[in-house]
Structures are given as C-alpha cells and as structure tokens.
Simulated scan of single mutants.
Amino acid sequence: MKKPIAQLVLIFSLLWTSGSAAGKRRPDGRIVNGREAFDGEFPYQLSLRRLTIHICGAAVLDGSWAITAAHCVDGHERKPQEFSLRLGSVRRSSGGSLMNVRTIYKHPTYDPKDMNFDVALLRTQIGALTMDPNAAPISLPESGEPIVENLSAVVSGWGHMSSTESTLSSVLKYTTVLTVNQQKCHRNLMFHGGVTDVMFCAAARNTDACQGDSGGPLVAQGKLIGIVSWGVGCADPYYPGVYARMSHPSIRRWVRLLTKL
C-alpha cells in the first residue's frame, strides 16, 4: 500500500518542478518533529485529494471556497472532478466529510518556473465546507498588512515527517515557526533564485525548516498569513521555508474579486 502512494507523490513532485528554477524550488511537503493535532484543533485545515490520494493541504475560506498552492493543481484546472477535499478530521484518510471540487482558479500570474503567486482557489457546492461541525473558515489579512520579523505562526499538514522518510503522516501534525527578515531570507536563498515580495520565509531551528504540506496554511493571530509554497532541503536552518504572502495586494484583490472575501 505504501509503495503506490510514494510513487504518486514522486510523480506529482516531478510534474510540479518542471523548469530550471522550479527544479531547485521543490514544493514543500514536510512537518518535521511536529506534534499531533486533536479533533477540532484546526477546523480550517483541509486535505486536498486527487483521485482519492492526498496530495496537498488547503484551508477553508468560507462555505464555498478553499485556498491552496497553485502548484498543487497546475495543469489540472480543467479537471476539477478529479479533486476532492476532506474536512473536519485530523486523520488523513478517514473521518470528517469529503466534498467535491467544482471549479479551480489558479492565480493568473502564477509562474511555475519561479513559484511566484503560488496560490489557487477551489470552489465547491455552496455551503459545503461549513456543513461539517468540525470545519470552520480562517480569516484573511488585510491587503498590504505587513508581516513583522519573528512573528510566531503555526503551520500544519500531513506531509513527510523527515527528509529521509517518504511516508505521509496519518494524523495532522503542526509546529510553531518564526517569520524571517525578508532581506536575510533573500540572501539565504540567493543561489536558488531568492524571494519576491509575493513570498516570505519562516523557520524554526531543529524542528521545521520545510514547514509543512504544500498548499497548507500558516496562521498567525487568527489569520491566514501564508500558504506553504517551496523550500530547499528539509530541517535546515539556513534554508527557511517559503510561503505565498496572503496580504500581498495582487493576491488579496484577486481573492476578493472571486470570493467577495
């Protein structure tokens, strides 16, 4: 059973990382040394599934809309019927509710070569994502809202638990990270293309540099400040995890245009 899942994860990773820059910028997929969540602790957390297999994290925005990373759905926008969302459960493969994705919207300026604007919206049946009593939306930051250095934030996901183990976690894991100075982050990742103003970094020494499942939520002060995007290596303090910046004006305008949120 483990072998097919590992093969599918590898296939998706290879598809996502086409292009020279993306070959260095690997979609992020691990919670290292995280703690197991209990039922109801992360009501906004979703498991994005393709052909019944968990491929990414996502987050509830309201009853009809979820948000994830663009690289999680890149190339499959016209096949939303292949995707579903598990909500209301900390278990990756059981519990909660399963809802079908009806429409996929990738950010119009997403670039798979450099992972810029790595955000996608998923539309479901009206009210589907708040029908489960253990599911609830997460708030968004205001447009242009700054992310201060050393801000404590929580990232969660079902990703690989170490850089050498390709098995997904069966139970949702989470850990606390701190946001990194933007200039320092850019310098650290210079040889991997650096970061743009649509991205920001967060890290935690000896616990989590890869940050979590691709497309998963990074939450601070009750707001979804970031979407897990890409990383270099795993659990390396010199290479912090990189997130899509949810407060970036171009992202917030686009989200508001589609969802009215």
Rank of each mutant, 00 (worst) to 15 (best):
L8C: 08
V9E: 04
L10Y: 05
L10T: 06
I11A: 08
S13D: 13
S13Q: 14
L15R: 13
T17S: 15
S20C: 07
S20V: 15
A21E: 13
A21T: 10
A22E: 09
A22D: 09
K24I: 08
K24F: 09
R25N: 05
R26W: 08
R26V: 10
P27M: 07
P27K: 05
P27N: 06
G29H: 07
I31S: 01
V32D: 00
N33T: 00
N33W: 00
G34S: 06
G34H: 05
E36K: 11
E36Y: 10
A37W: 08
A37R: 10
F38Y: 13
E41N: 05
P43R: 10
P43V: 04
P43A: 10
Y44F: 15
Q45C: 03
L46T: 12
L46P: 09
L48V: 13
L48P: 10
R50S: 08
R50V: 15
R50D: 02
L51Q: 11
L51W: 05
T52P: 02
I53G: 00
I53L: 07
G57R: 04
G57H: 04
G57W: 04
A58E: 01
A59G: 12
V60K: 03
L61W: 11
L61D: 12
D62L: 07
G63S: 06
G63C: 09
W65A: 01
A66D: 02
